[in-house]
Design a protein around this nucleic acid. Structure first.
Length: 449
DNA sequence: CGTTTTTGACCAGCGC
DNA sequence: GCGCTGGTCAAAAACG
């Protein structure tokens, strides 16, 4: 336990914040109950919901980050107490021996703490360098993006995000500014400031996942602002807006598939303008990666296997799909998570997940071991994939962490740079390409757009 | 009482 | 121009 606190103390602050925030946000992400939005409380580490628990998962007492920290801080005091007990019942020789042992233990832990901090700093630095590199690459590719979208057989592809610079911004803005009237998000739209963000605003990432829950828990906080009956689908389409920041432009649409109502189609649009909790960052990173690749044209239209490997690395040879659509008005990436013949990790979360120290250690070591053989997005994407593949976020998180354990290099964004918080897939997504619109996968979402 | 959801109305874009 | 559809707004209702 002390080690848990010990390691957690060395972990980056966002993680700690997330531990506190996540359960709240997770519950808030469940509009399904409508008023019951706060009914689902999820414990991040124990991997079970307080209201409903995944069958077969162990049920350790919830571990709170504060507890861990406090325990860590109290460690010397506890040590002192043990010393007192020893004094009461034994000779000073044994007490001093015990004290020395404890001090040695403490020293070891401090040493490890320092080492982990060093690793964290190193990982953070390399991550930032990678992110900068990615940004630079993306900025260098507007032309390729144009070519990519023009190469698609969809006539509407002429509206490439690359070419929508400021004029597109205004065009995109106008509905918000004009039509509805006093929209809260129309002034100083953060995404309009930057071409890339604009692209992310224009790009959409649609996620198809089997879920009985009315919404996918993606780590962000959403507020429902509308619901419509969409043509060709008896199920209503719900509109959500990110409420984690005042003017966050990210929106999402949630609708059940007309053909198979067990499939939930979530379409994200926009870029968060605020820091995200790790879970949301993981998912946002996945969407961001998908959208970026679509918009940057970093992959040939005929071969989306790159997307498969980069966005859905753990599933590049399986049966799910990522459908690329450049159809008007928004290029859309559809991640189809509905094909998952087996989800062993989700069915049987590994016991180590519930070991806080192991989690932290893995978290750290995995990030520290972010060797060049794996892009940082791998683990994030794998995590997002697992997370979004299953409505039970915590169980899916187990799979995500397991993927980290499995050797993925974990990197997490510390700013809400990623595209719309999104989710991705399961453990066996694969990616296929399609240049048609997403009608096959989300016909009710982008069919008439 | 503050926040969120519901729901009817409004607006813009598009096709005919 | 008209109708259809998608997207958004905002007042009312519901909830905690």
């Amino acid at each position: 336990m002390d080690k848990q606190g010990h390691l957690l103390d060395a972990s980056p602050r966002p993680l700690a914040c997330f531990l506190n925030d996540h359960s709240r946000r997770m519950s808030a992400d469940d509009p399904g109950g409508g008023r019951g939005r706060r009914s689902v409380e999820v414990d991040f580490f124990s991997g079970h919901k307080t209201s409903s628990r995944v069958a077969g998962s162990p049920e350790p007492p919830p571990i709170k980050e504060e507890d861990l920290t406090i325990n860590m801080q109290l460690l010397p005091a506890a040590t002192q107490k043990e010393e007192d007990d020893d004094d009461d019942r034994s000779a000073s020789a044994s007490a001093s021996g015990s004290q020395q042992q404890l001090q040695a233990e403490l020293g070891r832990m401090n040493e490890e703490n320092q080492r982990l901090r060093g690793m964290l700093a190193q990982v953070t630095a390399s991550y930032q360098a990678l992110q900068m590199h990615l940004m630079a690459l993306m900025q260098q590719q507007p032309r390729k993006q144009e070519q990519f979208l023009n190469a698609t057989p969809i006539p509407a592809a002429a509206e490439q995000p690359a070419s929508n610079s400021s004029t597109e911004v205004e065009k995109e803005d106008s509905p918000d500014a004009g039509g509805g009237g006093p929209s809260s998000s129309k002034q100083a739209l953060p995404w309009a400031a930057e071409g890339r963000q604009l692209s992310m605003r224009k790009a959409r990432v649609s996620v198809r996942a089997r879920s009985e829950a009315p919404i996918i828990a993606d780590g962000c906080q959403w507020r429902k602002y509308g619901q419509k009956m969409a043509k060709g689908n008896p199920c209503p389409r719900a509109y959500y807006r990110c409420t984690m920041a005042n003017a966050c432009p990210v929106r999402k649409q949630v609708q059940r598939c007309a053909e198979d109502r067990s499939i939930l189609i979530t379409t994200y649009e926009g870029t968060h303008n605020h820091p995200l909790p790790p879970a949301a960052m993981a998912m946002a990173s996945t969407t961001s990666a998908a959208a970026s690749m679509l918009l940057s044209g970093s992959m040939p239209s005929a071969d989306n296997s790159f997307l498969a490997r980069a966005v859905l690395p753990s599933c590049s040879s399986s049966s799910s799909m990522a459908t690329i659509s450049a159809s008007a008005p928004f290029p859309t990436v559809t991640l189809d998570l509905t094909h998952r013949p087996h989800m062993p990790l989700l069915q049987a979360p590994p016991p180590p997940l519930y070991n806080q120290s192991k989690f932290s250690g893995l978290h750290m070591s995995s990030t520290a071991s972010s060797d060049a053989t794996r892009p940082p997005i791998d683990t994030v994407s794998a995590a997002a994939a697992a997370i979004t593949a299953d409505p039970n976020f915590t169980v899916a998180l187990a799979a995500a962490i397991t993927s980290i354990i499995g050797g993925g290099a974990g990197q997490q964004q510390h700013h809400g740079q990623a595209a719309a918080g999104v989710n991705a897939s399961n453990n066996n997504n694969n990616v296929t390409s399609s240049s048609n619109n997403t009608a096959t996968s989300n016909s009710t979402n982008s069919d008439t757009q």
